[in-house]
Structures are given as C-alpha cells and as structure tokens.
C-alpha cells in the first residue's frame, strides 16, 4: 500500500512537471533561425526536395552515422548473446501452410521493390534509408516464416552490411576531399531539382543506409528466429 502510494506520487509529480512544461504551449507562427536556414538554404545547398532528408543526411549526417553505428552495435550484441546456443538436431517443425507459402512468393518481390523505391526516392518523397531498410527487413520476416526449412546465409547479410557501411563513411570522406566537409553531398552534380538523379550524393548515401539497415534488422530477426528454433 505504501509502495503503491509512492508510485502514484512519482507519476503525479511527473504529470505536474510535464503539464507545467507545456501549459503555455502555442503553435509557433514562424520557424526559428536554424530551421529557417534549413528551409531557405537547404534546397539550394543540397538539392534535396525533402528537407528532412537534407537535415538527416547532410546537415546532421554525423548524427546519422552515430545512429547507424548504434544499430550496428545492437545487431552485434544480439548476435553475440544469442548465437552461443546450439541448434538441436532433429527438432520437428510443423510444415508451413500452403496459403502462406504461395502468398509470400507473390508478395516478397513486391515488398522488396517497395523498399528499394522508398530509399531511392528518399530525397524527393517522404521516406528514406531507414524506412526502406525496415520494409526490406519485413520482406525478410515473411521469407523466414514461409521457408521454414531453408537456411539463410549470415555471411551474405554481413557482407552487404559491411560494404554499405564502408561506402557510407567513404562517401563522407570524399566530401572532405572534394567538397566542403564531412558528408558534404555536393561533390557529385546536384542535377535538376526534383528529379530522381539529383541532390548530389544524397541518394547514394541513403541507398547505402537503406541496405545497411535492412541487413542489420534482418540479421537481428534471423538470430532471434534461430535461437527460438534451437530451444524448441
């Protein structure tokens, strides 16, 4: 009882802090200086129609590199912690239903295509590398679910991830040598504004991020699935 009232007190205190913080909230009328700069100069400087992409890949590209690193670390730790369990031989698995197998054979190529479309058009439409990568990983989940017997090659995923991660950093370093700074995208031609091949290196970098995120999330799912199989 005492414990519960203590918890209620903590929650109420947090509610008071939050309400106090937002009580004077008003929808703003104009952008602040930094966002205004991104909105005004972003299209000119980066050539990206999607301002969020311009911020994520170019202006705050270093943050994105850190973010990809955190995802990589997570995938590595999960692989390290879970893969030690041995796969038990002769475990009987129920056969996958025919509906799932047939449907996934039709759907997986389409889902893959949508994922690639999303990250290739990251500089023009809503979406980008992370979203496209997540879509690719969802195709992978469907594939693992429908093809229960087949083994998926870990090394293929790891090579994809390594190459795209290396390419991301390499393009960032090219930005230092050929343009203004780390992850500066202007060393490739900015092209026609609003076309697929435009915005310098942004589509290339975002495609690499998409491949990397897709490979990492697929790897996490794969390792979790194999652990589950080993424990049955």
């Amino acid at each position: 009882m005492i414990r519960n009232s203590f918890l209620v007190l903590i929650t109420a205190g947090m509610a008071w802090i939050l309400l106090d913080a937002v009580s004077g909230y008003q929808s703003r009328e104009y952008l602040n200086d930094l966002s205004g700069y991104y909105a005004t100069s972003g299209p000119e400087e980066t050539g990206a129609a999607n301002l969020v992409t311009a911020v994520v890949v170019t202006y705050r590209g270093l943050d994105t590199l850190g973010e990809v690193t955190i995802l990589f670390l997570t995938a590595t730790i999960i692989g390290f912690m879970l893969r030690t369990s041995k796969r038990r031989e002769g475990s009987v698995r129920r056969a996958t239903s025919e509906v799932l197998v047939t449907a996934s054979n039709v759907l997986i190529p389409v889902i893959f295509l949508i994922g690639v479309y999303i990250f290739l058009n990251g500089h023009l439409t809503p979406g980008g590398g992370f979203q496209g990568g997540a879509v690719l990983a969802s195709a992978m989940i469907l594939w693992i679910m429908s093809q229960s017997g087949t083994k998926v090659s870990h090394s293929l995923l790891e090579i994809t991830e390594a190459i795209s991660g290396f390419g991301f950093v390499f393009l960032g370093l090219l930005g230092i040598i050929l343009a203004g700074g780390f992850l500066d995208n202007t060393f490739l031609s900015l092209g026609t504004f609003g076309k697929l091949i435009s915005a310098g290196a942004i589509p290339v970098i975002y495609s690499l991020i998409g491949l990397k995120v897709g490979a990492e999330l697929s790897n996490i799912i794969l390792v979790m699935n194999e652990t589950q199989e080993a424990e049955q």
């Binding site: 952008l31 909105a39 943050d63 973010e67 730790i77 879970l82 995120v213």
Partner: peptide
C-alpha cells in the same frame, strides 16, 4: 519555403529516435 512548411528539425530528430528505439527494444528483449 520558410513561411510554408512546418519545422523539419523535430521530424529529423524523431526519425533518429525511432531507429534508436527499435534497437534498444530488440536489445532489451534479448
């Protein structure tokens, strides 16, 4: 653009936060 669009900066931060959230959740489940 500066007088027609919403603030792009919080959206970029949320994009980062979602990805980190996925990673942390997977790690906690492990």
């Amino acid at each position: 653009a500066a007088s027609q669009v919403v603030d792009p900066l919080p959206q970029a931060l949320v994009l980062t936060a979602i990805v980190i959230g996925v990673g942390i959740t997977a790690l906690m489940l492990t």
